[in-house]
Computed example of a mutant assay.
Amino acid sequence: MKWYFVLACYLLAPAIAFCNSYGMGLTNLNLAPTYGKIALFVFSSLVGSDGGVIAGLAACGIIMSIVCSAADLMQDFKSSYLTLSSPRSLFVFQMICVAIGCIIAPLALWLFWTAFDIGDPDGEYKAPFAVIFREMAIIGIEGFAALPKHCLEICCVFFLAALIVSLLKDATPSHVSSFIPIPMAMAVPFYIGAYFGVDMFMGTLILFAWQKMNRREADGYAVAAASGLICGDRVWSIPAAVLSILRVDPPICMNFRPTSASV
């Protein structure tokens, strides 16, 4: 990992952190691992087979740590807004905690690294994500040749489409732009899964109907109602895990196949 690669990471990180903070503000989701994977592939391909794995992993760590901190700050700003707290005090305290973390985090890593066998597949700390990211770095060494067919073309098309939609939303009048979707919010279901998009769509319909019936009540209680629904959805993961351990199958199972596939 050459010094100019590290400098490039720090020059690119603020713009990427802004994108991640914007996504956090819209969706309350931290996509730092996604941006880290992009940096991993880019720097692994730039360095090549002579140290590309280490360079890619190092760049991934730098980008992820920076954009993750920015997203956490945005989430704290949202919390301070809802609780009528001082954003200036929150920002100062966040900077103090980041400074403390620069000391505590390396010490914690050193403690785990010396006290436990990190990465042992049969040990207590298997570190499965380390293996996954290393494999991605190995693939990234091959450059564009390792990508699936037409992957780069599809990425470029969707990037230009998102740019055009964003420009249209900013350039058109408010009565028109309100019907133009936000590309960042549209991209999240593609990353997480369709279930998230369905939940958000149903919640939007409920909020729309609620605002039509009682705008003041909806503005006052919509956040609390949405938080309760999201929390309830996550609470269900506990009985779902118990049912999975007991090998209880769901009453309905769907499977979608092409017509040419044999059943």
Rank of each mutant, 00 (worst) to 15 (best):
K2M: 01
L7D: 00
L12W: 08
A13S: 12
A15T: 11
A17Y: 01
F18A: 12
G23S: 13
G23L: 12
G23K: 00
L26V: 13
N28L: 13
L29G: 00
V42I: 12
S44A: 09
S45A: 15
D50T: 09
G51R: 01
G51H: 03
V53T: 10
I54W: 05
G56H: 01
G56S: 02
L57E: 03
C60S: 06
I62H: 01
M64C: 08
M64W: 05
M74G: 04
L84G: 05
P87Q: 04
L90A: 13
F93W: 02
C97M: 08
I100N: 04
I103C: 11
I104C: 10
I104P: 02
A108I: 07
E124A: 12
E124Y: 09
P128D: 05
P128Y: 05
E135D: 14
G143T: 01
A145N: 04
L147N: 01
I154P: 01
C156L: 15
F159A: 13
A162P: 01
A162L: 06
V165W: 05
P173H: 08
S177W: 11
F179Y: 15
P181C: 08
A185N: 04
V188R: 02
P189V: 02
F190A: 12
I192G: 04
G193M: 04
A194E: 03
F201M: 09
F201Q: 02
F201S: 11
I206M: 06
F208A: 15
R215N: 13
G228I: 08
L229W: 07
C231W: 14
G232M: 11
S237G: 00
A241Q: 11
S244C: 14
L246H: 02
P251K: 04
P251T: 08
P251Q: 04
C253T: 15
M254T: 11
P258C: 07
S262A: 08
S262I: 09
